[in-house]
Design a protein around this nucleic acid. Structure first.
Lengths: 339, 339
DNA sequence: AACGCTAATCTAAACGTTTCGAATGTGTCA
DNA sequence: TGACACATTCGAAACGTTTAGATTAGCGTT
């Protein structure tokens, strides 16, 4: 900027003024300065600007796993939204590990991000400390957090699973296996409630041996399914509470020599682009990823625009059951269908 | 830092010294300073540090689409690698659009990223200007760029497609449809050569009507496949040169009332987690995503570590044909197999 | 006791912006 | 003609670090 000022024979203050349009400067000088900027190929140093202004126009985004297609899609939407608003996005993957998440949040705060969108992990860790206390607004994504009262956008997980399991019950299924992630994650907790309530609402018992818990990974889904299928009275349907785990479920079914939906019905949480391309076409609970991402971005952008005082806002969106052909009717229903 | 210095009754220079270990300071003061840091909860301002040091310990990463599973995986690997090295990653999606890419590269450079990893789009745009000229090292990912002579890691695309198409020919296929992306993207260009060479090596003609070009999206693959399948002498196999497009291919086959592999064989570029879970299990060319991401990260980290003078390094990795059951033998071969 | 050497600490400039308040010039009005 | 308002422009401080070079203190030598 100094060079530009010299070339245009003005002070740096004037250059700054035309750059930001913050004061009226004569057409003549404006012209000279713009010319000098072009000649020199000057680019304003955003770091220096950030230091002075106290804002970086950068936000931090942390997700457990970017390879989970749900998060992939949401990250993509969020990135686009902030891009439009002139913000950069720093992306971190926490690998479902609380220490990693804490490290990365520290990394982001050190770099003075203006805001944070967090699909949190564990019990929240340092997140609890920075919400409210600090000056950086936080939006929780997908997962609420005890003791962290801030903006959030989540799914009505309970209702979504309730609907899906009720659908299975209507098809005639009575013993429905359920594979979940760690229950200290709010969506997993809520989904579990939805499962239990659906059974209870239909007057069915909740058999604890049909409930298996894993750590979100494909291998966990595989092992859980193996256990369910070796039960002496094995389930006729399995609901898998997240996407990577259902891959494990499908592989376990294949490896054990069964097929879906003939021998066992499968439904799962999270839709993905291939859902209706292959056989079986999976019945899933689709999350409105576009809306989730946009709402999260909007909540944060609103705070960044200065609206700091509004009380925390919690947006709850609805899932949608995508009925395909991975679940088959049982008993009397099966008769009427095949007839 | 000023507050820490006052609390510990020392100068800021001394605080800086213990923070960075850049000078010997007495145990007594060290102790006092560390105590003050804890008391105050002081965190060093990375922006001010960046301004002074001229380095941000942040890199920029741009990819065309993060929802393409190939890029998802590579982004994930790269993010982890830089995380380990204490770098933050700014992620941008260019949406296969050159102007968007230029905007985002400018955004990243404004923010003074220390380096750039780019899966470029279009003809490179301002990329050409910043390589060599500027002080920020650039690593090309997946896609080379004419006129941009810098570090790169790519696949041997030509060979990979050559092998895949040769495999189809060995199965007895003679008319093999080929669906590609824009040919100004180096991988697409190279893959096309591999396709042509495989046919030529087998003494087969290259029928131009079997070659269709799209813009990487599912819908493009769908339309191209529709066209191929309505040819009066339709192909017996289709090779789709990227992942989103093969979804379109599968949907088109389904919608037109055919099935894979009975009526038409399909193979494609890029493996994905579901490849072997559903029916048909897709035969794919798997890229070594882990290696690609790590090598790209290593190339850049090496430059960041100060090795600026070494000539550009180009790493070419091998793809791997994952033979599953989406391609069936034809003619005499089919006889012997079914016998 | 004067000297030099080393180790520990500090002062102050610099990084590249923004912005407040001061300075300068021009025109208007009494 | 002098006073005043207004429009432009500028000087310099500030943002929070790092670091070169200055200063000080302690100690062993002669």
């Amino acid at each position: 900027m100094l060079h530009v000022a010299e070339a245009a024979r003005v002070s740096v203050a004037t250059v700054s003024a035309v750059l930001n349009g913050t004061a009226t400067v004569s057409p003549e000088l404006t012209q000279r300065i713009e010319q000098a900027i072009r000649d020199i190929g000057y680019k304003r140093n955003a770091i220096a600007r950030s230091l002075k202004m106290g804002t970086t126009r950068t936000i931090g985004l942390t997700v457990p796993h970017i390879t989970n297609p749900f998060f992939t899609d949401v990250v993509s939407v969020i990135q686009q939204a902030f891009d439009r608003a002139g913000y950069a996005v720093m992306l971190c993957c926490t690998d479902e590990d609380l220490n990693t998440q804490d490290d990365q949040i520290r990394l982001l705060l050190d770099r003075m991000v203006d805001g944070l969108i967090v699909a949190r992990v564990g019990d929240g860790g340092i997140l609890k400390g920075i919400v409210g206390d600090a000056n950086v607004p936080v939006v929780l994504l997908d997962r609420l957090c005890d003791g962290v009262d801030t903006d959030a956008v989540v799914l009505d997980n309970q209702r979504a699973v309730f609907d899906a399991v009720t659908y299975l019950i209507h098809l005639g299924h009575r013993r429905i296996g359920y594979i979940t992630g760690a229950s200290d994650i709010s969506p997993m907790h809520d989904r579990m409630i939805g499962y239990r309530e659906a059974l209870q609402a239909a007057g069915l018992p909740v058999a604890e041996e049909l409930i298996r818990s894993g750590n979100f990974h494909e291998i966990d889904g595989y092992n859980a399914t193996m256990q369910l299928l070796s039960l002496h009275d094995r389930p006729s349907a399995i609901f898998s509470a997240n996407n990577p785990m259902v891959i494990g479920t499908m592989k376990a079914i294949r490896d054990i020599g069964l097929s879906c939906p003939e021998d066992i019905s499968v439904a799962c949480f999270d839709d993905f682009p291939w859902s209706d391309v292959f056989v079986p076409q999976l019945t899933t609970v689709a999350q409105p990823v576009q809306a989730i991402g946009e709402q999260a971005a909007n909540l944060l952008l609103d705070r960044l625009a200065g609206n700091r005082e509004a009380p925390p806002r919690k947006l709850v969106l609805k899932g949608r059951l995508m009925i395909r052909n991975s679940c088959r009717p049982l008993g009397a229903l099966a008769q009427s269908v095949s007839a």
